[in-house]
């Protein structure tokens, strides 16, 4: 496979995954805040700030009076806002276009339909009445895309590259969600016991990663800081956890790099090292210093991405 095209496919995977997480974050936070347990977590400003915090827009922390329509539009359909869903979807389709000969007709057609859906979505409707409809359509379309990726592509290097993009992006987005919701939990405290550890925001965090039901089934209790972090970071059976994503990155890396003992500081090596560290990490090590953990792991993921670039996409 051409290095240039591999790079494009890697980013196609990342952009598809990214748009899904933004859409779900908007949906879950907005709608769960409507009947949240306290005034602060029910307030519009709090939710909008949380959305901006998650996406990394500094406006979320500037104590400004935010306009709901403006924030929703910037995250959803504003083509002038670099992080909007529409720009992610455009980029995903652009990358698919450049690799049109390599991906299946079925996958291309789904991406193309997805793109036209977003492109033609009415902005006024979206910011006034369409938030639920739009975001649900995004998350469903991305699920379809993942299905097409899995079932209409040969599981070779092309597939491995796309899956690497998806999983690196997924772990990054989960960490960003943890970061944002941890920030929210510090502000919107729960009403009993350890008020941070028992905040309502942990439940929201799990829903943001479609892991709430799984978490309830696994722990059989209301989610707390400990069970949420343990589940979303360390539980390899949770399909959205950082651990699971890294396991997938590890196995797809082996398709690209078949050496048994990877060279020091090769992508394979960096992935394996991070994966091994997380495999033997305890939630207590994270819980006591969440901020530091988040920063450390984001840096490591960034490092992996950089090394991939040097090793495979450098053309």
């Amino acid at each position: 496979m051409l290095a240039r095209v591999a790079n494009n496919l890697f980013w196609m995977g990342r952009y598809i995954e990214r748009s899904e997480h933004i859409a779900r974050y908007m949906n879950v936070n907005y709608f769960s805040s409507l009947d949240a347990p306290n005034d602060l977590s029910q307030s519009r400003q709090f939710v909008l700030e949380s959305m901006l915090y998650m996406i990394g827009d500094p406006k979320g922390q500037e104590d400004l009076k935010l306009s709901e329509k403006e924030v929703l539009n910037n995250l959803g359909l504003n083509t002038k806002s670099s992080y909007s869903i529409i720009n992610n979807v455009k980029a995903a389709r652009e990358n698919a276009n450049s690799a049109r000969d390599l991906i299946s007709t079925e996958l291309y057609e789904s991406i193309n339909k997805f793109y036209h859906f977003v492109l033609n979505y009415d902005v006024d409707h979206f910011v006034n009445k369409g938030l639920y409809d739009f975001t649900v359509n995004i998350t469903e379309s991305t699920a379809i895309l993942r299905g097409k990726i899995r079932s209409t592509l040969l599981h070779d290097q092309v597939y491995a590259i796309i899956m690497l993009g998806i999983n690196i992006e997924r772990s990054t987005q989960i960490i960003r969600i943890i970061n944002a919701k941890y920030h929210d939990a510090l502000n919107a405290k729960g009403s009993y016991g350890d008020q941070i550890a028992n905040s309502f925001e942990w439940t929201t965090m799990l829903k943001c990663s479609e892991a709430y039901d799984m978490n309830r089934r696994f722990y059989k209790k209301t989610p707390t800081r400990t069970t949420t972090l343990e589940f979303l970071v360390l539980n390899g059976d949770c399909p959205r956890s950082v651990m699971n994503s890294l396991n997938q990155v590890f196995s797809h890396m082996q398709v690209l790099d078949r050496t048994k003992h990877p060279l020091k500081n090769s992508t394979s090596f960096l992935v394996g090292k991070l994966r091994a560290e997380l495999s033997y990490m305890l939630v207590e090590e994270i819980e006591d210093n969440v901020k530091e953990f988040i920063e450390r792991i984001l840096n490591r993921l960034y490092e992996i991405s950089q090394q991939m670039e040097r090793e495979f996409f450098n053309y």
Partner: peptide, 21 residues
């Protein structure tokens, strides 16, 4: 077969190569 652009190819000693992963 691969769909390439000019920038994906290079020539060395009068042989043509494409830049793959």
């Amino acid at each position: 077969i691969e769909l390439v652009e000019g920038r994906d190819l290079f020539v060395e000693n009068d042989f043509v190569y494409m830049k793959t992963i």
